[in-house]
Design a protein around this nucleic acid. Structure first.
Length: 277
DNA sequence: CTCCTATCCTGCGAGC
DNA sequence: TGCTCGCAGGATAGGA
């Protein structure tokens, strides 16, 4: 589920909830061995504190407290959902793989659910945040991104363009699905070397990345109107995929069968006619 | 340096 | 029906 659009949607939905109830009452821990061990003691120290704001950086959620920040990464299968106060392990709506419950004053609980446990929660001081994200690339949806400079960086790379597009040190938020989709939209062969791609192609690619992510946020957001029950779930956008998961099916534009091949261990999809070598 | 592989986990669908 | 296999949207350590 979570590439940039999905994390952005979770962030927006959580913000709606936190607008009303934002003070931490306490925490419940059902399981602590996520990707990293849950920092229980530090989380408990946040009791009584207000969540000042919640934002997204790359595929990470950041909850801001007085001195500290809580970082939440959803890994592959992480979800936050709401439950009413009184939720615990014995509640009827407790689900397998619910690991943490953040109880807010005012009667709402935020429950972190993550079957594969690739996600994590970390506490860092707010001062440490710039260092934490120092190695991360540009936000594709920010205004004022220097895409010319990004193009030059990409042109200095050796590997295939799809790998570069997924490298979070250059550009954040694009994962395996949106990489294939963006390259399709831009008419770029995924295995083409980053260095050999023309500046014109890069110009198209950045435009398509932004358009794609924006559109995905819009579609996901529309399905998740009833965010209190369903936020965190994938939206409608998968219906609009042009290539992802469509190997053997016809290209929506030219009817050529979509191909797929593994690149760096990740399934890669493209239309051999629309995306020429 | 850069690139690829394996790995952390559970669930699901395909195929037998 | 029930089993095994392969694969899944992230990120990183370690080897070549």
């Amino acid at each position: 589920m979570p590439e940039l659009p999905e994390v952005e949607i979770v962030c927006r939905n959580l913000n709606k909830i936190l607008g009303r109830n934002s003070r931490v009452k306490s925490w419940l821990f059902f399981r602590q061995d996520l990707r990293f061990k849950i920092p229980q003691k530090q989380l408990l120290q946040l009791r009584g504190q207000k969540i000042q704001s919640l934002s997204r950086r790359a595929k990470y959620l950041i909850f801001y407290f007085e001195e500290m920040a809580l970082i939440s990464h959803l890994g592959m299968t992480g979800e936050w959902r709401t439950e009413n106060s009184g939720f615990d392990r014995k509640s009827a709506n407790y689900r397998k793989h619910d690991h943490v419950c953040l109880q807010l004053e005012g009667g709402v609980c935020l429950v972190y659910h993550d079957p594969r446990r690739f996600g994590f929660l970390q506490i860092v001081s707010k001062k440490q945040l710039p260092a934490y994200f120092a190695e991360f690339g540009v936000e594709p949806l920010d205004s004022g991104v220097d895409f010319g400079a990004l193009t030059e960086k990409f042109k200095g790379l050796k590997g295939p363009i799809k790998s570069a597009l997924m490298n979070q040190k250059l550009l954040v938020g694009v994962g395996n699905i949106y990489a294939s989709e963006a390259l399709y939209r831009a008419g770029i062969y995924p295995f083409k070397s980053s260095a050999q791609l023309s500046r014109e192609s890069y110009g198209r690619l950045w435009g398509e990345v932004r358009g794609l992510l924006t559109e995905a946020i819009k579609k996901g957001g529309s399905t998740i109107e009833n965010y209190r029950n369903a936020f965190g779930e994938a939206g409608e956008f998968q219906k609009g995929f042009y290539v992802y998961g469509r190997q053997g099916e016809e290209c929506r534009k030219c009817h050529t069968p979509i191909k797929s091949r593994v690149l760096s261990g990740r399934s890669t999809f493209w239309c051999p006619s629309c995306q020429k070598k």
